[in-house]
Structure formats: structure tokens, C-alpha cells
Simulated scan of single mutants.
Amino acid sequence: MLSKLGVCSRSQAEKAVCEGRVTVDGRVVLDPERSADPERQRICLDGEAVSARERVYIVLNKPRGIVVSAADERGRDTVYALLSDAGLPWLGPVGRLDKASEGLLLLSNDSIWAAQLTDPRYHVDKTYHVQVDTIPDPAVMERMMEGVTDKGEHLSARRVSLLRTGEKNAWLEVVLDEGRNRHIRRLLEAQSIGVLRLIRVAIGELVLGELAKGQWRHLTVAEVASLRRY
């Protein structure tokens, strides 16, 4: 119930409930799956009444070397350090980018909207520009679209095309309509190809554009709606 109100993440809400910090109409709730109606019931966290937060949607250009986590047990920099002085409410990442990856990252306190965008049933296109350590022939791209099986998972790309080549490496555009852990890296590793850079440049119709590395902006109403259509 707390995550749907935009107060915190689902895991943070479950932890608060299990610790006895949440009450509904004055009674402690210990079941994380219990539902409540914020329009008719008084929900409190640590004795303070909570209500639905204003929905906030932002896009961030994530730099390489930063983890997508509220806190890191190893003390590494997180994306939240880039938002710390912005006066924003709690926001959760919509999907993930690993530490070595960069580019377009969405964050929001609208958990339902976020869940729909990351649900594989909706097949939201995610576009990446990937620098690889070789000049791949067309067969490499065909195999990426046909897919491979790795650790019991079938991995494939919806589309792959060659963007440009250098003397010893090349850039590919890879479009996924689902996202598994290290999806593109594992697809390429299966063909003994290494990734030098991996940048997410678009989700659906939303493109990273000229947003500077480490900077963020609010989504427009039209951008939120365009992603909601999926």
C-alpha cells in the first residue's frame, strides 16, 4: 500500500510492515500483502499519517561507474547522489542499468506505471548503442536476433544493425523488447565478442537526446502518456 502511494519502494514498504511500523486505523499491520483504502482509512508510517504523493517522473542520463541503488553496501556512488539536492520525493528506478552501462534511466514514485513499463508482457522497446571490440559480420547480428540459450534463459534481440565502424571496433544499435540481467553483454559473450561501451538511448518513443551526462529533467505530460500507452 505504501509503494502504491509513492511513499517508498515495495521492498522498503514490506520491511516497514514486518517491523510493525505501519498502522491502519490505529492498528498495527504485519501482513505486507494486506490492502488498505487511503480514501477511507488512516494509514500511518512511524506514527505519521501518509497519503498519496504527487506523481513525479524524471529521466536521468546515467554516467558509467555509478550503481542504480538507493545505497550500496560497498560504498560505491549511486544515481541518488545526482538527485540529492533536488528536493524530490522518494523515487524508484524504472528498470536497471548495471554499473558499467550508461544512458537513459527513468525514475518515478508511480509504482504502477513503473511496473507496467518493466513487465515483459508489454514488450516496451529499449534501444541501446553498443561499442564492441571487433567489426562484426552480418552473421553476428543474425545470431543475436535468432537468440542464444545461456544459463537456462533464451536471450535474443528484436533488432540489431550496424551504426558505424572504426579500424578495430564498431558500434551496433540493439533493440530489446525485454530485459534480462546483462542481456546484451551475454548475447555478445556467446559469440566471444566483448562490449566496450553500452549506452541506452531510448525507451519506447522517449529518447535521451541532448541531456548531458549526470543531468536529469522531468518528463512532460505527453512523454508520460506516450510510455503509458504501452
Results as ranks from 00 to 15, higher is better:
Met141Cys: 11
Asp119Trp: 08
Gly152Met: 09
Tyr122Ala: 11
Val130Thr: 05
Val174Ser: 02
Thr165Phe: 03
Lys126His: 06
Thr118His: 04
Ala157Cys: 08
Thr165Gln: 14
Leu172Val: 04
Glu146Arg: 13
Met145Ile: 08
Val130Phe: 01
Met141Arg: 08
Gly152Lys: 06
Ala139Glu: 15
His123Tyr: 12
Asp133Glu: 04
Asp150Arg: 10
Arg158Ile: 10
Arg164Ala: 13
Leu117Gln: 04
Val148Ile: 12
Ala170Cys: 08
Pro120Ile: 08
Glu142Gly: 13
Ser156Pro: 05
Lys126Arg: 15
Ala170Asp: 02
Glu153Ile: 11
Leu163Val: 06
Met145Arg: 13
Leu163Trp: 03
Arg159Asn: 14
His123Ala: 15
Thr165Val: 12
Gly166Leu: 03
Ser161Gly: 11
Asp119Tyr: 08
Thr127Cys: 11
Val174Lys: 02
Val160Gln: 04
Pro136Tyr: 00
Glu173Phe: 04
Asp133Asn: 08
Pro136Cys: 02
His123Arg: 14
Ala139Cys: 12
Glu146Met: 10
Thr127Pro: 05
Asp150Cys: 15
Ala157Met: 07
Leu162Ala: 09
Pro120Trp: 08
Thr165Glu: 14
Arg143Ala: 13
Gln116Asn: 15
Gln131Thr: 10
Val132Gln: 05
Arg164Trp: 10
Val175Tyr: 04
Gln116Thr: 13
Gln131Phe: 12
Val132Ala: 02
Val124Phe: 09
Val124Cys: 05
Lys151His: 14
Thr134Ile: 12
Gly166Val: 00
Thr149Arg: 13
Glu146Pro: 02
Glu142Phe: 09
Ile135His: 01
Val160Arg: 02
Arg158Ser: 12
Tyr122Gln: 08
Lys126Gly: 03
Lys168Asn: 14
Leu172Thr: 01
Lys168Cys: 14
Glu146Gly: 13
Thr134Gly: 07
Met144Lys: 02
Glu167Tyr: 11
Glu153Gly: 07
Arg143Ser: 03
Arg164Lys: 09
Glu173Ala: 09
Thr149Tyr: 10
Gly152Glu: 03
Ile135Thr: 06
His154Lys: 14
Pro136Met: 00
Val160Leu: 05
Arg164Ile: 05
Val132Gly: 01
Thr165Ser: 11
Arg159Gln: 15
Asp119Leu: 11
Tyr128Thr: 00
His129Leu: 10
Leu163Ile: 06
Gly166Ser: 07
His123Gln: 15
Gly147Glu: 02
Gln131Met: 09
Ile135Val: 10
Pro136Arg: 01
Gln116Pro: 07
Val148Glu: 06
His154Val: 13
Thr134Pro: 04
Arg158Glu: 15
Arg158Asn: 09
Gln131Pro: 07
Asp137Met: 07
Lys151Arg: 12
Pro136Ile: 03
Thr127Asp: 09
